[in-house]
Design a protein around this nucleic acid. Structure first.
Lengths: 207, 207
DNA sequence: TTAAAATTGTGAAATGTTACACGAGCTGGC
DNA sequence: GCCAGCTCGTGTAACATTTCACAATTTTAA
């Protein structure tokens, strides 16, 4: 209990949440087991039990886990029992797709601000949100105390935008740009370059 | 030399490729070092050397690595010395963003086919590629011997599409749908659910 | 009421990954 | 030609993660 919880454990909790939502939506059952969750996710039951044990005892021997209770607890642990507003930088095709995505709100997030540098886009609405001039980036982030940003700008602009975001107080970044961002230690970054993801699989393919 | 190379090593090679491309584009220098690459990527130099040593000896003591040579070698190892055609399923906002993304071709991929089930979309062009009826999915994949697919359909359709893709011979899948896909062992899957990625960071934030 | 089956939480063992540290080779300056 | 400074590749140690396996508890069924 004393030690910090491994990052790799934290990174699996959202997946558990996903499986629990799915079971809850099906509505067949009230409880599930580490075994069933494991089969759904392709993870061993022991790993699921061990991961959860970092945070408390959520299950009952002989019965398993109460689906909605465990779901609530994981939401609480991940601080998803609130809705996080997200700043989106870039209103191109990808920014459009993200702004219009209906999957954020039911799972704890919503795109609250969109920024772009293109005068043709500034002032338009994308996914119901007004596109602002990127010049207002810092002022807005500071005023609204924004913590999370999504970067959907070209590679050439990504590091400069990152610097400005960090300087203004952002501490969590999801980036689609194809490069490694230089950030201070306290800033968390998740990378989502589709090409890198494809390149991680070709090694295993037959030509 | 006898053992299989760890997946985690393979998963880092695309990142090395990214850094090498960046150095090549800058054009200042002909060689780099594990130290420099590490600083660029936030990885220790020892790890980079050890990773590369799984595949051969690419460096020279005192000098480091020849940038373009190492780039070529990594491309060869990852089978990126050819261009892989990719099938994209789903022509919504996300499919549109992916089909229009210019970053695939220079890094070894291109979207060669797009499928959707919406009659209003079938027959239109997206990113220069004709949208086909998803009914033709299996026939096209078999005929063209497609190995890689990107899933950009709603969660509710993703598993069924996956089953059809796998049945038709796809062995690598990049999916944006928010669920874990059930696939046979020999099929590789990369997950890219933006919500999961955001949820992996909120644990560390202050409310 | 009792026995069998299910399932958790967890120490300990096994396995996997990263970091250290150093011999050896290459380069550049004098 | 020689030496100081770099830098690689790698064996080993340290650290991290996963798996095993079992006592304890609960449920189910007879």
């Amino acid at each position: 209990m004393a030690n910090a919880i491994p990052d790799i454990v934290i990174s699996r909790l959202p997946i558990y949440l996903q499986a629990l939502s799915r079971l809850a939506k099906q509505g067949h059952k009230v409880t599930t087991s580490s075994q069933e969750l494991g089969e759904l996710l392709g993870i061993s039951s022991a790993q699921i039990r061990k991961d959860l044990s970092h945070f408390g005892e959520f299950g009952k021997q002989g019965t398993g886990y109460h689906i909605s209770y465990l779901h609530e607890q994981l939401q609480r642990i991940l601080k998803l029992d609130q809705e996080w507003p997200v700043a989106l930088i870039g209103a191109g095709f990808l920014g459009h797709a993200l702004a219009s995505y209906g999957g954020f709100r039911p799972r704890g997030f919503h795109v609250a601000w969109i920024f772009d540098s293109d005068p043709a886009k500034i002032g338009t609405e994308v996914g119901g949100v007004l596109v602002q001039d990127v010049a207002e980036l810092e002022a807005t982030i500071r005023r609204e105390n924004v913590q999370i940003a999504i970067i959907a700008v070209p590679a050439s602009a990504a590091q400069e935008i990152t610097n400005r975001l960090v300087e203004a107080g952002i501490t969590a970044i999801l980036t689609y740009a194809p490069l490694t961002l230089a950030v201070p230690d306290q800033v968390h970054v998740q990378y989502s370059d589709p090409v890198v993801q494809l390149q991680r699989m070709t090694y295993y393919l037959e030509r």
